[in-house]
């Protein structure tokens, strides 16, 4: 993390990306693009990250979020993420200091107070959030395979012990990177996952099907359908439009306002039923 707000993603990485591309009805929605957490591999961590963010957004919408404002958010992210003893404190704008766990607890308590019982999903998030906070200060080993930093720390400490090396060894920086490698034959996390040692929120079947087909009633589903059915007819493809060549389909499929699930389903049915003339097969 290098800055708090920016449109960049690969360099000058911000906590909050300000790109104005909602992928939804522009008049009603704004994009919330949080760069922090991009590198998560654990499905459980991802579920907690998305779930707790959803609850915090709801607290903000209800004007019920804790009154917390950090003096230097980027510095705080680095301080907290590098302190695996969870003792580091960061300075708030009001001059007081606070630990990362205290920040989490304040948000959790507010969410529990205002949102508990809203529905099954909310209660799942609250339950797992609380359990994770308890384990962070208790038997943290139980979070291996659930939280990335705990998992990676366990791997690195095990490796250091086996190889009799210290934290200054450059090998550890390479292992740090390799943890996130998405090549199943090389990635350290994926090696752990292949042995069934990580917590799964999805099945392999879910993942395999998501690789080739986006959600059917979204623009992603339409794009996937076109790639599967008309790969030789596609000239260019963006979220807003697909341009075709070859004469089988209209030259341009405009999708800039295509958000209503029913409209997407109609379009999907239409493009699913397109048949190639005999001379084109």
């Amino acid at each position: 993390m290098e800055t708090d707000l920016s449109v960049d993603t690969m360099h000058n990485r911000p906590i909050l990306n300000t790109r104005d591309e909602p992928h939804a009805v522009r008049e009603k929605y704004r994009r919330l693009h949080l760069i922090i957490g991009d590198a998560n591999m654990c499905e459980y961590a991802t579920a907690l990250k998305v779930g707790t963010t959803q609850l915090v957004l709801e607290l903000i919408a209800r004007d019920a979020a804790p009154s917390l404002e950090l003096e230097q958010p980027v510095t705080a992210v680095k301080q907290l993420s590098r302190d695996h003893n969870l003792k580091a404190t960061v300075r708030q704008k009001n001059g007081s200091t606070i630990t990362g766990l205290d920040i989490q607890e304040q948000y959790y308590l507010a969410a529990e107070k205002h949102l508990a019982g809203a529905d099954e999903e909310t209660d799942w998030i609250l339950r797992e959030w609380a359990a994770t906070l308890r384990l962070l200060t208790g038997d943290r080993r139980q979070l291996v395979g659930r939280l990335d930093w705990v998992t990676k720390l366990w791997l690195l400490e095990t490796f250091m012990q086996e190889e009799r090396i210290g934290w200054g060894d450059p090998w550890l920086a390479s292992l740090d990177l390799e943890y996130h490698n998405v090549n199943p034959d090389r990635g350290l996390f994926l090696g752990l996952e292949a042995e069934g040692k990580t917590w799964r929120m999805t099945s392999e079947q879910d993942v395999e099907s998501a690789l080739v087909a986006g959600p059917a009633d979204t623009r992603a589903g339409i794009r996937g359908l076109c790639i599967r059915r008309f790969p030789d007819q596609i000239k260019s493809m963006q979220w807003e439009r697909i341009q075709f060549s070859g004469g089988l389909l209209p030259r341009t499929l405009e999708m800039g306002d295509l958000f209503e699930p029913q409209a997407v389903r109609c379009l999907r049915d239409r493009y699913s039923s397109v048949r190639r003339p005999r001379w084109m097969r």
Partner: peptide
């Protein structure tokens, strides 16, 4: 569930990674 209190993700087959 990891919290052992209801629905949730699938627990690994064993507690400690090999």
């Amino acid at each position: 569930s990891p919290s052992d209190e209801g629905g949730g993700p699938k627990r690994p087959e064993t507690g400690s990674p090999d």
